[in-house]
């Protein structure tokens, strides 16, 4: 059957489809490629915002882009030591 299908050109997945898949994945990664400098400045800003609300463990912060075959996610692991209760105006929340 496989032989017949190939003979008549039906259902024959050529290398073009593979190229399209590979291209799509390469571009997902390229477009989300981040320089170490940019990642550092992102980390600083996140820390400064979070620090308004909580005390965080600066030495154990992990921020990185997590890539798999199909998507890219920003993954942050930020240990919280204590919530700053006094500084937040709960009436406004």
């Amino acid at each position: 059957m496989d032989f017949l299908r190939k003979l008549f050109g039906g259902g024959n997945d050529g290398s073009g489809a593979k190229a399209k898949d590979r291209l799509r994945i390469v571009l997902i990664h390229d477009r989300t490629d981040i320089s170490p400098e940019l990642l550092d400045s992102l980390r600083e800003e996140i820390v400064s915002v979070l620090s308004k609300y909580m005390e965080i463990d600066n030495d154990k912060i992990e921020i990185d882009l997590d890539r798999d075959e199909k998507a890219v996610a920003l993954v942050a692991n930020i240990p919280v030591l204590r919530i700053k209760r006094g500084n937040v105006d709960y009436d406004k929340v």
Binding site: N12, G14, G16, A19, K20
Partner: peptide
């Protein structure tokens, strides 16, 4: 002819990405 045979990226494949 290669596009027809499925062995080359087609115009729309490229425009999609």
């Amino acid at each position: 002819n290669m596009v027809q045979d499925g062995d080359m990226l087609a115009k729309d494949d490229i425009l999609d990405v």
